[in-house]
């Protein structure tokens, strides 16, 4: 048995230490908002926050995050600026990639609270959205940044 700290709750898991975090979250803990798509850290859809940093859970061994706080999209409050902005800008189409992109955004805005368009482009160039919601993702990131600034961080 190993113990993971997911969204503020300690969860016991019967999984091998070398298993990818992605599959432990999905298979063992039933947290299916973390998406499998490529399995090689290429698409970004399995992104979670590990101690606040966006990481691709398909290439993170579970044994390496036993001491860490793991946050999935369920771990963000419903009124989190990123969630509010994603609804306000009507971002998702199929929606499958969005939890990963939103969590990447949370990490990004913690590093760049007031990003330029170029910084958004660079950050998001490593995420795949097959539906093509990019124009709205960009607007939502800008809106979330503004909301966060108004809320005083």
């Amino acid at each position: 048995m190993i113990v993971l700290n997911v969204n503020g709750t300690k969860r016991q898991v019967d999984a091998a230490p070398g298993n990818p975090l992605l599959w432990v979250l999905r298979d063992n803990l039933g947290i299916t908002s973390v998406k499998y798509t490529c399995g090689i850290a290429e698409c970004g859809m399995c992104t979670v926050l590990i101690d606040g940093q966006a990481r691709r859970s398909c290439v993170v061994n579970v044994e390496d995050v036993l001491e860490s706080e793991i946050t999935t999209i369920e771990g963000l409050p419903e009124n989190h600026p990123v969630k509010v902005a994603w609804i306000e800008k009507q971002v998702p189409q199929c929606g499958y990639c969005q939890p990963g992109i939103m969590l990447q955004t949370v990490d990004f805005l913690s590093r760049e609270p007031n990003p330029t368009e170029e910084q958004i482009n660079n950050e998001m160039d490593h995420m795949i959205c097959r539906c093509g919601t990019h124009p709205r993702i960009k607007k939502a990131i800008q809106m979330a940044a503004e909301m966060t600034a108004k809320q005083g961080g």
Partner: peptide, 21 residues
């Protein structure tokens, strides 16, 4: 109108086929 399926998608609640159990 706001799309009715978007809040669940944003909150991570949507159960896609791959998530079904």
């Amino acid at each position: 109108r706001n799309r009715l399926d978007i809040p669940d998608k944003v909150m991570g609640k949507t159960v896609y086929g791959i998530d079904f159990t």
